[in-house]
Design a protein around this nucleic acid. Structure first.
Ligand SMILES: [Mn+2]
Ligand SMILES: [Mn+2]
Ligand SMILES: [Zn+2]
Ligand SMILES: [Zn+2]
Lengths: 138, 138
DNA sequence: CAATAATTGCACTTCCATTGCATAAGAGAG
DNA sequence: CTCTCTTATGCAATGGAAGTGCAATTATTG
């Protein structure tokens, strides 16, 4: 019984071949991926299965969804010990206007945002757009 | 020649009946609207015309687009003297999880966000979700 | 008025997200 | 191990929003 199996068990997710493959795919990526990316990586598998696998991961707080403003939902693995299941992740996301990739800046927490009297802030989505390190570094 | 005509002229937008109606509709709203909202308000007009009118307004920096994470694009009139034409609006947006409405917090500017070495920040989208004043105030 | 340019309406397309249902695979009881 | 029941997977279809091509209408200009 290895690490990943234990991890799945702790998250109450049954281990299947498909899920393992998709998990490993996500784990190896350092940028957020679209469903399309996953499709391209697993052409033999059905779109719906991939979709529902990601949804399962999301429900169980294995991945979190990212809305970077491109109109296409992206996903990334949650940090170990994140609390995505109880609240939105507090880190910010960076979208590169050049390479069109989106990454989690997990150690850049979202600052406290002041809202007017009467408003209650429950969570915050913060996306910074610009040029990423790979693209800016020539 | 009244105010609105002058305003349209200053923005290099030709005045048409449709545009005037839509402008007035937006001006009277205090929340961001979807294309669907506009459609419902002008059932006799064609969807495409409404769509393109909004797009024209957007191009000419009369309205700005808001991505509040619901997946549906919303629009709101720009403040007088905003600089939406040269950069994204710097104010933050609030989305109410209760009434599902989104409003511009025009006098709440987005704070400076620090990004890691090598990253260049060009603009920022900041959406706060929670309960709005109308919904929280009982 | 005629000629030209911009706006509007209709039909159609594309793309992503989501669901219903049938089948296959897996877990558990006996 | 076998039967039963649950869950996962695959296929087909749907829904909704966004965007485009083109023809018809309306506005502008000379
Ligand atoms: Mn993230
Ligand atoms: Mn705004
Ligand atoms: Zn980049
Ligand atoms: Zn509200």
């Amino acid at each position: 019984m290895n690490n990943i199996e234990q991890f799945f068990e702790s998250k109450h997710i049954r281990l299947t071949a498909m899920r393992l493959l998709i998990y490993k795919f996500l784990a190896q990526k350092d940028v957020a991926v679209t469903l399309r990316d996953v499709e391209n990586a697993f052409e033999k598998a059905d779109r719906t299965t991939l979709y529902r696998t990601i949804k399962t991961f999301e429900d169980k707080a294995v991945v979190h969804q990212i809305d970077d403003g491109t109109g296409i939902t992206k996903y990334a693995l949650c940090e170990k010990g994140c609390n995505c299941d109880i609240e939105t992740d507090l880190h910010l996301h960076f979208h590169c206007n050049n390479c069109n990739e989106t990454i989690c800046l997990t150690d850049h927490k979202i600052p406290q945002i002041k809202v007017p009297e009467g408003f209650v802030s429950e969570n915050v989505n913060l996306v910074v757009k610009g040029v990423c390190d790979k693209c800016s570094g020539q």
